[in-house]
């Protein structure tokens, strides 16, 4: 049972890949809760949707590779520009002229790209636990190369395509444990491992072998962002060190909300503070007539 069900759902199909979206209708501005890495799907926003939908119109979709969307196994199908185009296709399909966008981890970088590349469509961006080239690596992430075949896969060495192909579930248990680094996160861990196992190691390998946005181009796009930005990051993030968030806020001129003791997915583990921050951010930055409506 969900706390809130969508008012309508639909699909956009691009190059035979079908993307499933959900719309929670309301007056006021739209906020698009973007997909993250295909490890999870749109349910990772489950603690945000009911609250935000009371105040705004909310659109979510499952990124290709998980949830109700198709799961191509060709790396080319996960290229950055394709993921960006998926987002724009969902905006069009849901008649969303302008919107706030929010994303977690890889979803954060997707949100930032949309904000930089489509200033006429994006009113503001919420970037949570965002993965970018910026900032320091977390000290623990010094694993062997992704494509190297190893005899043993301990700790971060499990971040390896060969391991995913043979021991995908074990990888997801390890990785989701690192995502929810806060004590007493058993429910979030179970949810995360569950979502992760709705897709396969093969799909995830494809998402990693795609062409990635190069560092300079990324920096250029980030620096071009003109809309309001809210950066949220846990100081205990074991996937992406929070120094990235400080740099991200500096480059985009954004506001930084640091969550002391928070991990990589604060929207799941600290939903109240994240919900209130997003609400406040949208209220402050929504065009006046949108709020009056």
């Amino acid at each position: 049972m969900r706390a809130r069900y969508p008012d309508h759902t639909g699909r956009v199909v691009r190059d035979d890949i079908s993307i499933a979206y959900e719309v929670y209708e309301n007056g006021g501005p739209t906020i698009v809760l973007l997909p993250t890495w295909s490890l999870f799907h749109s349910r990772h926003w489950k603690a945000q949707i009911p609250y935000l939908a009371r105040h705004f119109r909310v659109v979510t979709y499952d990124g290709r590779g998980n949830g109700q969307s198709d799961r191509p196994v060709d790396p080319d199908a996960y290229a950055s520009q394709i993921l960006i185009a998926d987002a724009m296709a969902v905006l069009d399909a849901t008649f969303t002229e302008t919107a706030f966008v929010a994303g977690v981890s890889m979803g954060g970088s997707l949100a930032a790209m949309l904000a930089g590349l489509y200033p006429e469509r994006v009113l503001g961006a919420v970037l949570i636990g965002t993965s970018t080239w910026l900032g320091n690596e977390t000290p623990e992430r010094n694993s062997a190369a992704f494509e190297t075949r190893l005899d043993r896969y301990d700790g971060w060495d499990k971040y390896n395509m060969h391991y995913w192909q043979s021991n995908y579930r074990d990888f997801t248990e390890f990785f989701v444990d690192r995502i929810f680094s806060e004590p007493h996160s058993t429910k979030q861990w179970e949810d995360g491992v569950g979502w992760a196992n709705e897709t396969t190691g093969e799909v995830l390998v494809a998402t990693q072998l795609k062409e990635t946005l190069d560092e300079n181009r990324e920096r250029e796009v980030l620096a071009s962002i003109r809309c309001p930005v809210l950066v949220i990051h846990g100081t205990g993030d074991r996937i992406k060190h929070y120094s990235a968030a400080e740099k991200l806020a500096a480059i985009t001129g954004g506001t930084l909300l640091l969550i002391e003791g928070g991990g990589h997915c604060p929207q799941g583990r600290d939903p109240v503070v994240v919900n209130r921050a997003i609400h406040n951010f949208v209220e402050l930055n929504a065009p006046r007539q949108e709020i009056l409506k």
């Binding site: 806060e182 909300l257 640091l258 969550i259 002391e260 928070g262 600290d270």
Partner: peptide, 11 residues
Amino acid sequence: AMKSRTWSRGL
């Protein structure tokens, strides 16, 4: 404008 800030988890 919103102000940057740090929120500490309860525990």
